[in-house]
């Protein structure tokens, strides 16, 4: 049984794309306020695992429970689940025809049916959180990559999710812009946001992770506190950390 504090739990999750087994019995548990970092080589199934949480992918067997929603249940109310889960992608995916403010107020108004004025107040607040108060009336294309990604994070935050998912959110950015995005995520973690993230920034992972899950060929090859990154138990993780990939 999941405990009260469990926000995301995976039990023997399996998922194949055709003949390719991408998740091969994955287990993990994220408690409230915890940061889980998923690492692993390209193609090891990290993104798929993350996308299963928000049911962008459906699993073949096993069980996923997120904020009390049984994600694996075919009768799940998807939109209820997704109100509780925020997801940020590598390619920011801001809506190009809307201003930053409109990007942020759209879902709270359309989904949560809060008033326009209330949504605008919320937009100001989340933009302050990511340091973009002055970009309210800009269009996405007028922002740098790092600013766009921060705006995308703000857009998710405006829905007041119970858990945030980040999939390599700095991978598309120039190195000098990754810092500003990572800093925002660090602040969120410090404020107690529950998070699951895929990242290749090892130094960052060490600093922020309560738990690290190392995926290898669809399996959790090694899992534990951030210290496993400095003293890995398996040769695969040792090799992965060693090459810094």
């Amino acid at each position: 049984m999941q405990t009260n504090a469990s926000v995301v739990s995976f039990r023997s999750v399996e998922k194949s794309f055709g003949a390719l087994k991408v998740l091969d019995g994955v287990d993990f548990e994220v408690a409230r306020g915890e940061v889980l970092v998923i690492i692993g080589r390209s193609g090891s199934g990290k993104s798929t695992a993350l996308r299963c949480i928000d049911r962008f992918e459906t699993i073949d067997s096993g069980e996923i429970v997120v904020c009390g929603h049984r994600v694996s249940d075919p009768k799940l109310d998807l939109r209820r689940l997704r109100q509780d889960v925020g997801i940020v992608f590598q390619s920011y995916n801001l809506f190009p025809h809307l201003t930053i403010e409109e990007n942020i107020t759209l879902a709270p108004c359309a989904v949560k049916r809060i008033s326009k004025a209330e949504a605008k107040r919320k937009a100001r607040q989340v933009l302050a959180q990511v340091g973009l108060e002055d970009k309210l009336n800009s269009y996405p294309e007028q922002l740098s990559g790092g600013q766009q990604q921060r705006a995308a994070i703000a857009r998710s935050l405006a829905m007041q999710p119970k858990v945030m998912l980040f999939d390599e959110v700095t991978s598309a950015l120039d190195p000098e812009l990754t810092g500003e995005v990572l800093k925002v995520i660090e602040t969120l973690a410090a404020d107690g946001m529950t998070m699951v993230m895929v990242t290749h920034e090892m130094g960052f992972a060490k600093g922020i992770a309560n738990q690290v899950v190392f995926m290898h060929r669809g399996k959790v090859r090694e899992a534990g506190p951030a210290s496993i990154l400095t003293s890995p138990a398996t040769s695969e993780l040792a090799q992965f950390v060693g090459t810094g990939l």
Binding site: F56, R80, R82, I87
Partner: peptide, 10 residues
Amino acid sequence: QIEAAEGLAL
């Protein structure tokens, strides 16, 4: 774009 919108529960 559509996934981002779906993720926002639209």
